[in-house]
Write a protein that binds this DNA or RNA. Structure first.
Length: 467
RNA sequence: GGCCACGUGGCGGAGUGGUUACGCAACGGUCUGCAAAACCGUGCACUCGGGUUCGAUUCCCGACGUGGCCUCCA
């Protein structure tokens, strides 16, 4: 089945044709590194990891370039640096914060089973490209200098009659609407309220770089220009897919698109714009004030990364997802079963049914339904079925450990002494053999009270930790 | 206020103009000393009101409800 993807810009699902099948190119907006990533941040990481894996499967591992940036220049980073390392010069403190946070982020998303992107560029290493784009925009009449700022003018963009897209096309709103609905105080140096910052002067002590366009004081880039620059450097003037959270559509992606299209005189930046929906926690918006703010790190303390991963994929990426412990328990149970059925099977080819489901705009619920089907074939005793099931799970970033390790993880977390359990079970087996069912049931209850569930079969009695 | 998305069985969640989603839970059965697990099977649905149609959960209009964006945000 041909891959089809939904494009936010054209609001349609359409067949995906790479600009260059030998190098399929995707850019996804990555984290701003100032604190632990939260569970909402995990959604694009997982969703676009699945897409990355699908593209690698379809076009070959060596023919897909996935770029996910690291934003390491930002007010929040500066604030955090000053707070956490008050004794250090700000620049050093900032480096500490960004390095530490980036490592935390990597540890977290690795645990979620996400492959590392092909390139993870840092904003601060692409200042030259940003300046270059800004210079081009000023020369082209799309941006202007005012009070040591460089500002982009959407009005100028829309006035230029050329191949350029219309500013506002991605977010589906007109400049008039934006002007009418503006709720922000307009900075005095802006010609129009819709103008946005490409470059601004740095405050004393902040990280800064020589400014473009003849500005004498040092400055720092605006947020939107960073992604235009990094995408350009690593993927070229045009590429295939640009992704991120739905909240980035406006203004971030709208502005990126405007910057890149105007700088390169192009009708587009990416062929497909993809956006994942938001996440709520137990039916409430996640926020620090509600006290339901969950970091990936905290979730990983309670659940294996694969449980979080499966849970995230139970809902289609464009729909909102309600993150609940009930759903997580269900996901955990499903994976327990899948590990039991599939683990340690010899890998065969991944399933076409699963690839087809993903090819339909990443229909992961359909993919999971297909996995349940594969599971049943595998459980019926078909060794080939087991191999196909296992290969498919591995392709999707599951089944990264052995069945024994998976089970042991739960046991370890419970802190239960396996030897003690085994002893109790032999006592129970002995009681059953002499038909002392009162005693055997008593032992069973004792085990249950400890959180241990036993399973009797012809081969003997096994046990596991109840959830 | 402006723009947008969504509303499916007890719960989660796909999809479709007429035919089984899938999973969890529930219920019945097999197995078991009894259970659990496993396996087999069963039931339950498309917010409301109009319209289009031979026929709508699926298309159109409206109402109500939920969520998002418009400001940093995945």
């Amino acid at each position: 089945m041909q891959l089809r993807l939904y494009d936010t810009l054209t609001k349609e699902k359409r067949p995906f044709t790479p600009l260059d099948p030998a190098n399929v190119r995707m850019y996804v907006c990555g984290p701003t590194v100032y604190d632990f990533a939260h569970i909402g941040n995990a959604r694009p990481v997982i969703v676009f990891d699945v897409l990355f894996r699908l593209l690698r499967h379809l076009y070959g591992d060596k023919h897909v370039t996935y770029v996910r940036n690291v934003t390491d220049v930002d007010d929040k980073i500066n604030d955090r640096a000053a707070r956490d390392f008050p004794g250090l010069p700000l620049n050093e403190a900032i480096r500490k914060v960004t390095e530490l946070t980036e490592k935390q982020f990597h540890d977290d998303v690795d645990a979620l089973g996400a492959l590392r992107p092909t390139v993870e560029p840092r904003a601060t290493e692409h200042i030259a490209e940003m300046r270059e784009i800004i210079e081009r925009l000023v020369q082209g009449g799309f941006a202007y200098v005012a009070e040591d700022h460089v500002l982009f003018s959407p009005q100028a963009m829309n006035a230029a009659n050329s191949v350029l897209p219309r500013y506002g096309a991605l977010a589906n709103r007109s400049l008039d609407e934006m002007i009418a609905g503006a709720r922000v105080d307009v900075a005095p140096y802006k010609r129009d309220s819709t103008d946005f910052v490409l470059w601004k002067p740095a405050k004393p002590g902040e990280p800064s770089w020589p400014s473009p366009s003849g500005i004498s004081v040092p400055g720092r880039p605006g947020w939107h220009i960073e992604c235009s620059a990094m995408a350009w450097k690593h993927l070229g003037e045009q590429f295939d897919i640009h992704g991120g959270g739905i909240d980035l559509v406006f203004p971030h992606h709208e502005n990126e698109l405007a910057q890149s299209a105007c700088a390169f005189h192009s009708d587009r930046m990416a062929n497909v714009w993809m956006h994942n929906g938001f996440l709520q926690v137990e039916s409430e918006k996640m926020s620090k004030s509600l006290g339901n703010f969950i970091t990936i790190r905290e979730s990983l303390a309670d659940w294996p990364g694969e449980v979080l991963r499966l849970n995230m994929l139970k809902t289609h990426y464009r729909s909102p997802i309600d993150w609940t412990s009930k759903a997580l328990e269900e996901s955990a149970k499903t994976l327990d079963d899948w590990y039991e059925v599939a683990a340690d099977a010899k890998a065969e080819r991944p399933s076409d049914a699963v690839i087809d489901a993903l090819s339909d705009d990443l229909n992961t619920p359909q993919m999971i339904a297909a996995l349940h089907g594969l599971r049943n074939v595998a459980a019926s005793g078909s060794e080939r079925g087991r191999g196909e099931f296992a290969a498919t799970l591995r392709l999707l970033g599951f089944l990264s450990e052995s069945a024994a390790a998976w089970k042991g993880r739960k046991q370890q977390a419970s802190g239960i002494d396996a030897k003690q359990i085994d002893d109790l079970i032999s006592n129970r087996t002995a009681a059953r053999a002499r038909k002392d069912f009162k005693e055997s049931d008593r032992i069973r209850d004792e085990l249950a009270a400890m959180g241990v569930v036993i399973k009797d079969s012809r081969e003997g009695t096994t046990w596991e930790i109840a959830r």
